[in-house]
Every structure is written in C-alpha cells, then in structure tokens.
C-alpha cells in the first residue's frame, strides 16, 4: 500500500553510477539539491555528463562536482561564475557544450514531453550555435532543429512533496527543476518538507507526481552563498 517513493538516499544509491548523464536543477547554485550533490561528492561518482543551467560557483552546488573533477562533460548555458570550469575547458580536461539558455530549457522540456526536439531561430546565423545542426525552412524563415536532451537521472530540489511525488517549488529556486523532473529515466526529488497525500492543493502543484520516482529529505544547504 502507498506509493513508497519516500526513501533515503542510501537506499537508491545504486541508481547513481559512474559515466551517467545526470541533470541537476538550479541556476547559479540556487535550486541545486544540496544533499543529492553532496552524495555524488561523497560517493565519488565520476565521469559524469552533467546537464545543468550553469556550473554554479566553485564551492556551491554542482560547482563542487566540477572542482572535484567528477565531470567529464558539461551541457550548460554558462560557466562564468565558476572559473575552475573555465580553466578545465581551456586545458581540454572537460568537454563543454553550450546551448543558449532558453534553447537548453526547451531541449530539456522536449525530452520531458516525449518530443524529439524543438525548432527555433535563436542562433540561426551564429556559427557557434548552428554548427552541425539541421535547418528547416518554415514559411520562408530558416530555423534550427535542436534535439531533445534526456538524462539517466534527474536530481531535483523542491520545497514540498506529498507521498505521490507531487511537487511545489520555492520562488526562483524553481528555474530548471520542473523541466528536468520530467526529462530523465529516474527522477529523485530532494525536498524541504514531505506532507501526507491530499495536503497539497491540486491547483498549486507544479510537477505532477507521476514524473517523480523517489523523494529524499533535504539536509539543507551546506555552503555559504557568494553574497553572504
């Protein structure tokens, strides 16, 4: 009986392995799930292809994974706030695939929606963006075909979950989280608060629980923010 999604990270640890493609929600560290990121650090999961909006800051969120050299490839829109990521990219230690931020979001959303890609004219005349991509002529306009981005596992931070995995988020910590929650084979939501089923208003739910496979309790942020 029950949905049995609420678990401890130790019990679902076998879902996280070397060489995986892992999506992590967040923007500049805000909305990165701190406890799940720390688990990747502690377990020394390596050779990760990390899909994230950005590389956060060196000691904050997913920035730690980059600094610990656990990431082999980054698929991001930005790494400027993490100079270590820039150094590793310049030295050829890490592969970085940049997508314009809105295109990155849509590629992730497409995967979550069961679509194979999106069609956009962002970067259509930009050789850094349009390189090796197919183009489509639609009513006389030229567009890029941007392929959907899937992951093996998505690591999500949410404010609240019920036992079915319905999620609500916290202010700007929402960012890529609801999109990534839909785009992986296995989605783990780290939450500040778990409530009994029926406690969340159906109207307020942002991510329906059908997309969420496991829920773990957050131990809270274990870093200092740059503004502190």
């Amino acid at each position: 009986m029950g949905w049995r999604k609420y678990t401890s990270i130790g019990d679902i640890g076998e879902k996280l392995n070397d060489g995986m493609t892992i999506m992590v929600g967040g923007f500049g560290g805000v909305g990165n799930p701190p406890t799940l990121v720390q688990y990747l650090v502690d377990q020394q999961i390596e050779e990760i292809t990390l899909i994230c909006n950005d590389a956060a800051f060196p000691l904050i969120g997913v920035g730690k994974l980059v600094c610990n050299r656990q990431v082999k490839k980054l698929i991001v829109s930005h790494i400027g706030s993490n100079p270590v990521a820039g150094e590793q990219m310049t030295n050829g230690e890490i592969e970085v695939e940049f997508s314009p931020q809105g295109t990155l979001a849509e590629r992730i959303r497409a995967a979550g929606m069961g679509l194979k890609g999106v069609v956009t004219n962002i970067g259509i005349d930009n050789e850094w963006v349009n390189k090796e991509k197919r183009t489509l002529d639609i009513n006389g306009g030229l567009y890029l075909l941007e392929e959907a981005l899937h992951a093996d596992v998505a690591l999500i931070y949410a404010k609240k979950a019920d036992e079915f995995g319905n999620l609500i988020f916290d202010k700007t910590a929402r960012n890529m989280n609801p999109l990534m929650a839909m785009a992986a084979e296995f989605t783990i939501a780290e939450v500040d608060e778990l409530v009994p089923i029926g406690e969340l208003e159906p109207e307020e739910i942002i991510t329906p629980g059908v997309f969420v496979d496991a829920i773990v309790k957050s131990e809270g942020v274990n870093w200092s923010w740059v503004w502190e």
């Binding site: 923007f27 909006n53 979001a105 929402r174 960012n175 942020v221």
Partner: peptide
C-alpha cells in the same frame, strides 16, 4: 537564499510579481 536575480544576488519582489520555470521565462523573451 531562494529569491535571487540572474547574477545570484538576493532581490525582493513588487506587487504583482510572478515566479515561473526557465522554459516560461524564455517564452516571454522569444
């Protein structure tokens, strides 16, 4: 700590403000 601008610095909101995910955010822009 969960209410920041795109540079990662804390902000406040005005009356009528709304939160949304990154896809909606760039929908407004595109």
């Amino acid at each position: 700590e969960n209410l920041c601008n795109a540079a990662g610095y804390p902000v406040t909101t005005v009356k009528g403000a709304s939160y949304f995910d990154s896809a909606v955010s760039f929908g407004m822009i595109r």
